[in-house]
Simulated assay, not measured.
Amino acid sequence: MNPYQSLPARSFWRTAVAEPEMLAVDDLWTPKFALGQDDPILTAGSCFARHIGRTLLELGMNWRDAEPAPPGLTAAERSARQYGVFSFRTGNIYTAAMLRQWLGWATGTATPGTESWVEDGRHFDPFRPSVEPAGHDSAEAMLAAREVTLAAIRDAIAEAGCLVFTLGLTEAWHERGTGVVYPMCPGTVRGTFDPERHEFRNHSFTQVQQDIIAAVELARGVNPELRILLTVSPVPLTATATATHALTANTYSKSVLRAVAGQLALEHEHIDYFPAFELITGVPFRGAFFEPNLREVTPEGVEFVMRRFTAALSRRPAERPDGESRPEKGGDQLCDDAVLDYYNAR
Rank of each mutant, 00 (worst) to 15 (best):
E140F: 09
E140I: 02
E140K: 03
E140D: 13
A141M: 01
M142W: 03
M142L: 09
M142R: 04
L143K: 03
A144I: 02
A145P: 06
R146G: 10
R146L: 03
E147L: 09
E147Q: 15
V148M: 14
V148S: 12
T149I: 11
L150Q: 10
A151C: 11
A152R: 05
A152L: 12
I153F: 07
I153H: 01
I153N: 08
I153V: 10
I153K: 02
I153R: 03
R154A: 11
R154H: 15
A156K: 00
I157H: 03
I157N: 01
A158M: 06
A158R: 06
E159V: 15
A160L: 14
A160F: 11
A160I: 12
A160T: 09
G161P: 07
G161M: 14
C162N: 11
C162A: 15
C162T: 15
C162V: 15
L163K: 02
L163C: 04
L163T: 04
V164Q: 09
F165W: 09
T166H: 10
T166A: 05
T166R: 12
L167W: 08
G168M: 07
G168T: 05
G168Q: 13
L169K: 08
T170I: 04
T170G: 03
T170L: 05
E171D: 12
E171T: 07
E171M: 06
A172W: 00
A172F: 00
A172T: 08
H174F: 15
H174Y: 15
R176S: 09
R176W: 01
G177W: 03
G177M: 08
T178M: 07
V180R: 15
V180T: 14
V181W: 03
V181G: 06
M184V: 14
M184H: 04
M184G: 06
M184F: 06
C185Y: 00
P186N: 07
P186Q: 01
P186F: 13
G187H: 04
G187C: 02
G187N: 05
T188C: 06
T188A: 07
T188N: 01
V189E: 06
V189I: 12
R190P: 04
T192A: 06
F193Q: 08
F193K: 00
D194T: 09
D194V: 12
D194K: 05
D194R: 11
D194L: 10
P195W: 14
E196T: 13
E196G: 15
R197S: 04
R197D: 07
R197M: 11
E199T: 14
E199W: 12
F200S: 04
R201K: 14
N202W: 07
N202K: 06
N202R: 12
S204M: 09
S204G: 06
F205A: 04
T206E: 10
Q207A: 13
Q207E: 15
V208I: 14
Q209D: 10
Q210F: 00
Q210R: 10
Q210M: 07
D211H: 10
I213S: 06
I213T: 08
A214V: 02
A214C: 08
A215D: 00
A215E: 00
A215I: 02
V216A: 13
E217G: 11
L218N: 01
L218G: 01
A219W: 02
R220F: 01
R220C: 07
R220Y: 03
V222D: 05
V222F: 08
